[in-house]
């Protein structure tokens, strides 16, 4: 079972793909924040924001959204490539990864519940902008499990 001289060994390929997946997840979180945060700011303080800043927010939000789509397409291509290589797929998604995914989703769900509960608790006292609130919940719901996975799988 030693590494063959021709081409990288299976372990090397798995490690390289693990790194790619990790980079893609970090990029996905980054672009999601770039996409959502300017929109949330724009919705939260629409009148207090200078026109130039508002335009910047719109531009950043659009750029983030576009990058997100590009990254999702890249991730989809990555998944297809892995799906066609069962020996790589099984190693990339072994039981440790399965357990980390479940743990990350559970923790992300708890964080989302905390945000919902905070919104419910604040609602009687503060006029919360609905659009900004929904975008925040969506952003937290998507990014929190990804961040927890990255943290749990840090090595």
């Amino acid at each position: 079972m030693t590494a063959e001289s021709s081409g990288p060994s299976l372990t090397d390929q798995v490690e390289s793909l693990e790194k790619s997946r990790r980079h893609m997840m970090i990029s996905l979180v980054g672009t999601l924040l770039l996409w959502f945060v300017p929109q949330i700011l724009e919705d939260a303080v629409p009148d207090a924001m200078p026109h130039a800043l508002k335009a910047t927010c719109v531009f950043l939000g659009m750029a983030g959204g576009l990058l997100w789509v590009v990254l999702m397409l890249r991730y989809h291509r990555f998944q297809n490539m892995v799906r066609n290589r069962p020996e790589l797929r099984d190693r990339l998604n072994d039981e440790r990864i399965g357990q980390l995914r479940r743990e990350a989703i559970y923790r992300g769900w708890v964080v989302l519940l905390v945000f919902v509960a905070a919104g419910v608790a604040l609602a009687p006292f503060v006029a919360l902008p609905v659009q900004a609130l929904l975008l925040t919940l969506l952003m937290v719901g998507v990014s929190a499990p990804l961040l927890f996975f990255l943290w749990l799988d840090r090595g």
């Binding site: 079972m1 030693t2 590494a3 060994s9 299976l10 372990t11 798995v14 490690e15 693990e18 099984d90 190693r91 990339l92 072994d94 039981e95 440790r96 990864i97 799988d153 090595g155």
Partner: peptide, 16 residues
């Protein structure tokens, strides 16, 4: 890495 190959998991899993 060799053990990971024999068992069918990633090296990181063996390490952890």
């Amino acid at each position: 890495a060799e053990l990971a190959d024999r068992v069918g998991v990633s090296r990181k899993t063996i390490n952890t």
